[in-house]
């Protein structure tokens, strides 16, 4: 037990869960048929919102995390209305332009530390540890304080992920989810059914932005620091990879993508083959996977047959 709960594994599992949230944020937008590369920008907004509130205003974490979701959502509403008139590759490029613009602006924002970013963000792990010590709660036999704190952080992130999944599944089973599916399959037919496609596309875009921002806030509080370069093109592509490889037709797809890609590459960090460390080739592997999956299995690894239900469950 204590072996399985070693700090490294706990941190990897936390990292996987945060990435699953990021994958889900892209999935939400994709569930209306829109490909976005802008969620790295929204993640940056969330991470910086949390980091600034915590370091400059001393705001507690129960305030910084909701704010990390809220600020991107406020930006996403006008951005969505303006850019979702665009389709396909145009939308992809426009949202990529957004991500890069956010990065450049943050790099030049001296108040937020410029290119170096923000350091010494109160970390969730440290907060939990201090809380445990203050409450004089001793970790169960065989566990250190750090292990227990890491475990609590992991459980917290898993809780957020569980809530996000529950939200997405519930929504998919109702009127809003049907509108998303209809738009993804055929926009013109959806419009003819009386569905306001602009409204629902913006709604999905804003939901994606909120989730990406929340994940950004979590990252800020897990890593102690944020910097603009974390939220560049590479991040946008990584988020997309999780969904494309894991599966884009069910919310479990991006979760599987995060477990496979992030989990394996982190878990096998020190694994070497023919003298080459596997982690050095992680991005090459991602690239090959993207190519293979798009060519051989465009819906991703995990797919769902059309839901069959005669009656509502």
């Amino acid at each position: 037990m204590a072996v399985l709960l070693n700090n490294y594994y706990l941190q990897v599992a936390t990292f996987v869960s945060v990435n699953a949230l990021l994958g889900l944020s892209v999935y939400l937008v994709l569930s209306t048929g829109q490909l976005t590369l802008g969620n790295a920008g929204f993640m940056a907004l969330g991470a910086y919102t949390a980091a600034l509130l915590a370091t400059k205003a001393g705001a507690p974490v129960w305030l910084t995390l909701p704010a990390a979701a809220l600020v991107p959502a406020i930006v996403a509403i006008p951005l969505g209305y303006a850019s979702l008139r665009l389709r396909g590759v145009y939308l992809a490029i426009a949202t990529l332009g957004f991500t890069e613009s956010v990065r450049v602006l943050l790099q030049n924002w001296e108040f937020a530390g410029g290119a170096l970013g923000i350091k010494n963000i109160p970390s969730l792990g440290r907060m939990v540890q201090n809380g445990l010590k203050a409450a004089q709660i001793a970790p169960p036999a065989g566990l250190t304080h750090a292990q227990l704190a890491n475990l609590v952080v992991l459980l917290f992130v898993l809780l957020v992920l569980g809530l996000a999944l529950a939200f997405i599944y519930r929504q998919a089973g109702g009127r809003v989810g049907r509108a998303y599916a209809a738009i993804r399959i055929d926009e013109i037919a959806a419009e003819a059914m009386g569905i306001n496609i602009t409204y629902y596309k913006v709604l999905a875009f804003v939901q994606g932005a909120m989730l990406a921002g929340l994940a950004g806030g979590l990252v800020a509080h897990i890593n102690f620091s944020v910097s603009p370069s974390e939220f560049a093109f590479g991040r946008a592509v990584e988020m997309l990879t999780l969904v494309v490889v894991g599966g884009s037709t069910t919310p479990l797809g991006p979760v599987l993508g995060a477990v496979l890609l992030i989990g394996l590459s982190e878990g096998l960090r020190d694994f070497s083959l023919f003298g080459a460390r596997l982690s050095d080739y992680r991005l090459i592997l991602y690239g090959l996977l993207l190519m293979l999956v798009v060519a051989l299995r465009p819906q991703g690894l995990l797919t769902f047959a059309p839901r069959r239900k005669g009656a509502r469950a």
Partner: peptide, 16 residues
């Protein structure tokens, strides 16, 4: 059921 969209009104809150 998609066709009933414009005769119904529940939103995100109601669905979730």
């Amino acid at each position: 059921v998609v066709g009933t969209h414009c005769r119904t009104s529940s939103g995100v809150w109601g669905s979730v």
